[in-house]
């Protein structure tokens, strides 16, 4: 690629991120008291590198 540089390629990850366990912190409990997920990104499963809970496990 000459004219485009891929900095973050999330093409493959999208599938994995669909089914959350909803155990993470609710947004307004963070610093800003607004709902946005920028700055409020702690996925509890992240450390264990288990990003999602599969749908059938929910």
């Amino acid at each position: 690629m000459k004219r485009i540089e891929v900095l973050f390629d999330n093409g493959k990850k999208n599938d994995g991120a669909k089914y959350g366990c909803m155990e993470c912190q609710t947004s307004c409990q963070s610093a800003c008291k607004t709902s946005c997920t920028i700055g409020n990104q702690n996925c509890l499963q992240k450390e264990e590198k288990v990003y999602v809970q599969k749908k059938e496990e929910k």
Binding site: F8, A17, G20, C21, M22, C24, S27, I38, N40, Q41
Partner: peptide, 25 residues
Amino acid sequence: FHFMIDLDKGPCVYKRLNGCGAGDE
């Protein structure tokens, strides 16, 4: 706070669609 973004592994899509969870969770 508002410039901290995680493009590798942010919140799951459920959370992204749900938002703050007010009145629900």
